[in-house]
Nucleic acid binder design. Sequence first.
DNA 1: CTATGATTTGAACGACCGTTTAGTTATCAA
DNA 2: TTGATAACTAAACGGTCGTTCAAATCATAG
Lengths: 195, 195
Amino acid sequence: MARKTGSHSEITGPRVRAAALKLFARHGFAAVSMRQIAAEVGVQAGALYLYTKDKQSLLYDLMQAHMDELLSAWAAQPKADDAVSRLEAFARFHIQFHLERPDAVFIAYMELRNLSDENFAAIEALRRRYEGELEAILQAGQAEGVLSAPDIRLTTMALIAMLTGVNTWYRDGGRLSRDAVADIYWDMVRGAVGA
Amino acid sequence: MARKTGSHSEITGPRVRAAALKLFARHGFAAVSMRQIAAEVGVQAGALYLYTKDKQSLLYDLMQAHMDELLSAWAAQPKADDAVSRLEAFARFHIQFHLERPDAVFIAYMELRNLSDENFAAIEALRRRYEGELEAILQAGQAEGVLSAPDIRLTTMALIAMLTGVNTWYRDGGRLSRDAVADIYWDMVRGAVGA
DNA sequence: CTATGATTTGAACGACCGTTTAGTTATCAA
DNA sequence: TTGATAACTAAACGGTCGTTCAAATCATAG
């Protein structure tokens, strides 16, 4: 056997990435074999190498795409004039974006250690850029005198950790809607910085 | 060669657990081989099986010990009368305890998916117990009318995520002491629940 | 000093790993 | 309809995996 009927790289390519995303999120990068990914796609292991240089690149590409999407989605948000409104927008955006793609988020936070040194540096830089967005808001709020953050970096990390944590417990169809969850988190964020 | 001079199970046993803790935290359970752990201990792979039934038990034992220590350390804390003081004690305890043992914390949060079903259930129960401690404090505070938490479970998860996040960025010898960090986190916790 | 048990080695087991390659079949433009 | 090329299989590569076990050496009680 060889090429299968109806096979096209524009179809198989995305399916490879989707399968890898799903399996990496469920079992972890190191615990998932190329053969498992191939089986999920419905293909033999060798065929994967038409779509990725190697396993490491597959992980990196997923993370890269996720971080790019995160940054560009935030950049596309409307920018309010005052810091408190921008902080609210950030909180709501962060929660909505993360709830939308739990697998990618999970991988981006858990598989950093499985990246090669160069790949890690690249992803880390993107993450820092995102954190910088929140930092800038807090800095502005401090300057405006509308919130208090004794240590901007600490507050940034604390708020991001709190917000990202929503993915560890929230499930659709539970007692709270996504909007209700975002409302409560925003209240907590506001309280935490005294705004 | 066979038995080495000066070999004793009371020495090698702890060294096996210490090596596993360190390597699992650095590279992840699935990415670490029994031979790597053995090399860290200075022993051949086969010798590890005098100290653990298998690799899975090694992971489980580490997690179990960590969760037991967490729960008993919290239980040993003095209990204040009012909810706000108990909340402050919890926040400070959580940060101090987690900063003290970053490797164990990291494993306990990251390697849950590598546990067998039964082992996962056991660890999850312990984690729930710990979360229940914070939940009870929030519940009491709500009853006392000294804080506001629209959804106790959400607030519990949000606060724990925020506090645990300290391990992702804090390093000893930086610009803030552990106590200073705890002070700021406690201020944020208090603000987040409007206390 | 001896004998018993504790501790470890070294080799081996079958299974699975990521990756490469030659060969085969489907697609599609001309 | 043909020929080129895209997509895939099947098999194989050397290596590593977790785990077991007989044999060897050390510690120690009597």
